[in-house]
Nucleic acid binder design. Structure first.
Lengths: 308, 308
DNA sequence: CGAGGGGCATAACCTCAGATTATGCACAGA
DNA sequence: TCTGTGCATAATCTGAGGTTATGCCCCTCG
């Protein structure tokens, strides 16, 4: 226990004292601290008793600091200012060191997390702050994001982009589902199955209707049994045998490798687009963000995705 | 509210942090702070969350400070050391300014308090710490007493003394008691009355037995109805009409002036001793103590005591 | 002069921040 | 393998610090 504590049993007394001394008013200090005036009155009395020092002269309509009070106020304020400066500068340094990345929930859960251990092992000093976002069109600068992913052609103003993985979408279901309801020979057969779909509020993605139309299947008779709010939900329902979902090839790779999902039909849809790694152009990148970007690219998501 | 508080909601977190950092052990810090280990664990976690800084590396059998932790520890310790130094020096100065005086309870209540307002008006900057003591033979240096009173001849080793008031002891009772039980013509009459006596454990004072013997009254038939543990008790009982007490002339002066007590018999006993103001010879007196001594002497307790 | 307002002090009572107890996990060492 | 050490976590408890109500002493204004 620091010896200061024998003089000031609660260091919070000093927070209260500093406010009352600065404001020269217990009532004003109470407002500032969001407590009642008697709480301040009592706390100051406790501090005066603990130290044996008379810090204020109470003069009915005026509160004056004694000489001791003045001295303690000055020193307390300086100590607090200094500690604030130290913590702030440590935070600033820390903030500079943390890489803030933002991806869809499905990407984080299905692709990134299973591989993150590798990145951590290669770069133990890089801290990632991983945010799951429901939108692709975030303003990277405004939201203080160092790196993200976006589907498109890679040409966005104020953005540096690196091609990451081709958009390729294919049906997936669990082995049990296929055994029980299969086989499926052609795209038109899908109309007789439970199709798991998702619609994201802020992100346009290929759904069953478009997929079938691109495979010349009439969709008048399409019914959608379940609609999830993100891709992750629909894929996990497929894993649980509840139907056939559309999966992005790189996202379902691990499930397929593990045998939890199969591809019931070899038809896939390639949009010609790709998912790109993006970083803000307006400021120099953090070293950790560069390392993460490089690591992402070298994962070669196209090569490690299952062949269609 | 100081901005530090937005970073560290409770300054007591820093007490806990400083101890854990110094000891490099939550368990040891808990012992030092007289709390449990989980309390320290939780508090450090709260501090880390509040600041966003990782302060310790937990390594199972070793606790290490991070670089941030090291920096914060160093700065916190310096701030606390400094505040401790400031408060200590203010206390030292304050201690030098406070005059510690020690008297019997009867003197404090019956003589000093009714007159203290005058001293305060003349010396508003002198602070008195007034202790009531049950003994005359205190070691002034050891008990850090600046000034006291002692009955005797004024010759004590290591003590400076100033004659204050003659010891003169006389019977007193309330006017009502005298009307109801009087008159009293000679000392021997007292044997037929309720005599209020006191015996102090550490202080020898004249009691009824000695007083009567010195007035050649046979004391074989003396009975003592009440025995108090200090003079104050016996005098206050007399004021309440419960009997006749022995009073030191200077102590009962105010009661007599106010008509609360009367002197039923003009016989008084003068021991040849006096009460002396005493101060320790081993150290230079505080200015305030000198002022108080001078003020006591100029009260001229002998002159303001009632004539016997 | 009286009324009203402002501000600190005090007492009785309340409540939640910080504490405890019990337990788990991961080491390290014998 | 077993035992001991030390930090983490969860459920629960409790007392430090807060609230509400009130009082006292000013000061100002009509």
């Amino acid at each position: 226990m620091h010896r200061l504590r024998s003089l000031v049993p609660s260091a919070n007394y000093l927070f209260c004292f500093e406010a009352a001394a600065r404001r020269r008013s217990f009532t004003a200090a109470a407002q500032e601290l969001n407590v009642s005036q008697p709480a301040v009155s009592k706390t100051i009395r406790l501090l005066e008793e603990a130290t044996g020092l008379k810090l204020f002269r109470r003069e009915h309509t005026r509160l004056e600091l004694t000489a001791e009070g003045q001295r303690l106020y000055k020193e307390t304020q300086e100590a607090f200012d200094h500690l604030h400066m130290v913590i702030s500068s440590l935070q600033q340094k820390h903030s500079n060191d943390v890489v803030r990345v933002s991806f869809s929930a499905s990407f984080v859960q299905l692709w990134l997390l299973p591989r993150l251990k590798d990145f951590k092992a290669k770069h133990p000093d890089v801290s990632l702050r991983i945010e799951e976002s429901s939108r692709d069109d975030q303003d990277l600068v405004e939201e203080d994001i160092d790196l993200s992913a976006r589907l498109g052609n890679g040409k966005w103003p104020g953005i540096h982009s690196w091609r990451f993985v081709t958009e390729e979408v294919l049906p997936v279901c669990s082995p049990d589902y296929l055994r029980e309801h299969g086989p499926i020979h052609e795209p038109a057969d899908l109309l007789r199955h439970t199709l798991l779909n998702f619609e994201e509020r802020h992100r346009t993605r290929l759904g069953w209707r478009e997929w079938l139309e691109r495979h010349t299947v009439p969709v008048a008779r399409l019914k959608q049994d379940f609609v999830f709010t993100d891709a992750l939900g629909s894929i996990e329902a497929a894993v649980l045998g509840q139907g056939i979902a559309l999966g992005w090839k790189h996202l379902v790779h691990d499930h397929i490798q593990a045998g939890r999902l199969v591809v019931p039909l070899q038809e896939a849809y390639r949009s010609g687009h790709a998912v790109h790694i993006i970083m803000p152009a307006q400021r120099p990148p953090k070293r950790g963000a560069e390392l993460f970007r490089d690591w992402l690219i070298e994962q070669d998501a196209d090569a490690s995705a299952p062949q269609s």
